[in-house]
Structures are given as C-alpha cells and as structure tokens.
Amino acid sequence: MPQIIVENLTKTFKVSQRQAGTLGAIRGLVKRTYNTVEALNNVSFSLEEGELVGYIGPNGAGKSTTIKTISGILVPDSGRVEVMGFVPWKERSEYVRHIGVVFGQRTQLWWDLPVIESFDLLKDIYRVSQSAYQKTRDELIDRLQIAPYLDMPVRQLSLGLRMRCDLAATLLHSPRLLFLDEPTIGLDAVSKLAVREFIRDLNRKNGVTVILTTHDMDDIEALCSRVIVIGKGRLLRDGTLNDLRETVNRERRLRIDLEDSEAQIDIPSVAIWKREGSQVTLQFDPKVISPAELIQRVAAQVAIRDLFVENPPIEEIIARLYEEHLS
C-alpha cells in the first residue's frame, strides 16, 4: 500500500482585491471584492515508502499548498489525503510525530538560543527518549558537520549552516517521511552540495521517503528519479526524469569544436542550434538519426577538434512544459 495517497485534492483561497492608491484603500473599506484563487485543482498522486520525489512548478503553482495540506497544516476544500493511514488535518497531533518538514525560507530554531538548546527543546516536544535522542542527535551532528556551531545562537549562523542545523532539527524524532520545501534556496554551492548529499544518504541508507520542492533543477537532477510537475494548481506530469525528457523534448545536442571556424555543416533533419566562433551546437532527434551516424556524417564534412553529446538542461524542458500548459 502506498505511503501517501492524494486523490482529487482541491483548495481555493479567497483573496481580497484592493485597488491601488489612497482612493482604492478607501473604496476597500466600503466594498470589498474577492478573487477566488485555485491553489490546487484535482491533484492526485501516490507515493511508495522510500521514494525520493521532486515536486516542481513555477512560483504560485501550488507546491507549498500541497506540502502544507499533506503535512496537516491546511485543510483542503475537497479530496482525500491519507498518509501512513492518517488523515493529516484530522489526526494532526498524532500524525505529525511521524513526519518532518523543512521550510527553506524560515527557521524552526529559536533565534536567540544556542542551536543545541533548540534541539533539546524539540526532544521534549516530540517526547523522544534520552537514549534514542542522544544517538540520533550525535549521528546527525556528525553527518551534517555542525559540531563546532552548536553553542552559537542561531541568529549568528550563516544561511548554509542554519539550513544544516534546521535539517538536523527536523530529523531528531526520526521521521519516516520528510517534506523539504526549497531546502537549498539561497545557499552557496558548497552548502548546496552538502545538503544534497545528506538528503540522498538519508533516502538511500535510512529509507526515509522524501518529497522535495525546489526551483533548482540541479537538485532535481542530482536527487530525484521521479518528478511531479504542477502548474496553476493542476498536475502536469508525473513520471521519471527520463520520461519527462522523452515526452516534452526528446532532442539531444551535439557540441562540436571545429578546427576551422568558417567550416559549414549541412545535414538534413539536423538543426544548428547555436554557433559561436568555432563552437557549433547541433540539435537532433535520436530516433531520426543516431548519435553515431550523426558524428560520422559531421566528421565527413568538417575537421573536428572535440565533441560531446548532451541532454538539453532540465530547466529548458520544464520551461517548455510550463509554456505548453499554461499559455
């Protein structure tokens, strides 16, 4: 049985509209107009235990609303959600013992207290036994390499460190299911890699199910085998990263470094995607012409210094998907 079942999840928000300016503000006092925003519209998916799923979509697509509904914070208008046998918003206090949530843009640590005191506080809030707590805490401190910073007040930590501490804080009660809402937002390259590696380990070694929302496609590429794409509250795609590539944009690219920057390449059914000096990028569909054949043909026409085949970056695929569905 799947660990998470989401069926026809729908949630609308009423947003009061106000005209700009003083006059608009005065008018708003007398008469308010409301706009209904469909944050989620019939979203359905299910997840097996131990999956690591990327949940992506543009700003305002409904990612956070989904996370907040599945974690029991928001009550949906209609639809069914069942996680580990719980209906999140109905049995919240029992349910939340089994999950962990990180909201990347906010911290759960006490701003003015040393990190370790926030940990101790969470131990009591989740009623974790002392022995289990010590074991989990020490392991997390070790894996996230935060030992030197435990006595610092949270307000003095850099964003990257704070995120590592936040991750540790979320896992102190050993949740089986982890929601990460933009965990790498604003982090530098080193911290991003550290966070990513930690998430991957957590999923592979400890078998924790992870749902990850992010705008950083490198996160998705590095971590997730499965992606769920939503836009304007609707589910657009649900499948592996490769499926997504296949259906949206099968094309691959061949980047060639030419000996002679003036040389011309002309192969039917293959387009020149970009040309900068001696660097030429060709776009081709591997079902029409295989990479080996293409390389052969190119080599017959021009002298090649170097070449390699690549997939279009995932950003482009996603951007195309959004354009197709949202325009």
Binding site: G72, R92, E94, R97, V101, F103, Q108, I125, R127
Partner: peptide, 14 residues
C-alpha cells in the same frame, strides 16, 4: 506575519 507559524502547527503539542 511571516508564516513560520507553520512550524508550530507540525508539532505534536497543543
């Protein structure tokens, strides 16, 4: 005001 209240709602406490 800033939405961190979400964290208080995922705690198993009253």
């Amino acid at each position: 005001r800033n939405g961190s209240i979400a964290y208080e709602l995922i705690r198993p406490i009253d």
